[in-house]
Design a protein around this nucleic acid. Structure first.
Lengths: 133, 133
DNA sequence: TTACTTGACAAGAATGATTCTAATGTGATA
DNA sequence: TATCACATTAGAATCATTCTTGTCAAGTAA
């Protein structure tokens, strides 16, 4: 946790609660998920604090902002290169840790500095397969 | 264009204008982009019509809804399997047509019906590289 | 060609995620 | 322990998207 102070973050109780919630969390929570959980401990917690903290962490490369869910942004504290699989029905996201060798296409390199890539797998999870029509 | 009638779409002038705008369009427009262009021809065009039409096309597999842009949904009339590269600054999206063999990981298959995948490349485009700070 | 039916359209309100504002509070440092 | 830069709060504002309701028109069949 000290590493956060080292990158110039003030460690407020609210931030620590958010960091603790995120630490090791593989549920790819939304801002709302984080807010409603941390609010239990800090009833005066504001949505703005959640968004501010997430943005600060993102800018310092401590979390990933995922765009795979069409309804809302999702956040991932695992910053090692990995990929994701989302259920198109319930929007559950799971990690896909296999490492694929994706060559950066010349076509792309011509006019872009390509910084990275991310593979989105999509499908239907078991739960939705059984429950849903 | 007749193919749209065949899949049960009523071909209204508004829809034809939207379809014409999308046909061969590789700019990955947002709903706003589509609206503001088509509105020139149909000044009474409503946003709801754009969204309704896009949703109808999507449900029938005639367009792709892209989630790669964190700010808004983007639409792609090219439904052949392909990937995308986005500029993190200006959100320009270009097609990456190379076909990668992405094996569906067992880990994922265990608890999901995996239906497909999509690779997002991200970087900075030449224009932003020069213009931006 | 006409009338019918179903689905599409328009206008604007509503929703909901996210961002902004302005006033107040507080870690970290010296 | 005082200071200051930055964080927090509450609530308003924004903006993409969806919904509602009344009207209209494409496609079909007579």
């Amino acid at each position: 946790m000290e590493r956060y102070r080292e990158i110039g973050l003030k460690l407020t109780p609210q931030r620590l609660a958010i960091l603790e919630y995120l630490d090791g969390n593989t549920s790819h929570p939304s801002a709302e998920d984080i807010y409603s959980c941390v609010k239990k401990k800090f009833p005066t917690m504001s949505f703005a604090t959640v968004y501010n903290t997430l943005e600060t962490l993102r800018k310092r490369g401590q979390i990933l902002e995922l765009t795979i869910d069409p309804d809302r942004k999702r956040y991932d504290p695992n910053i090692h290169p990995h990929n994701h699989l989302i259920c198109l029905r319930c929007k559950t996201i799971v990690d896909v840790d296999l490492d694929f060798e994706i060559p950066i296409p010349d076509e792309a390199r011509k006019s872009f500095d390509v910084l990275g890539n991310h593979i989105e797998f999509y499908g239907i999870c078991d739960k939705c397969k059984k429950g849903g029509e």
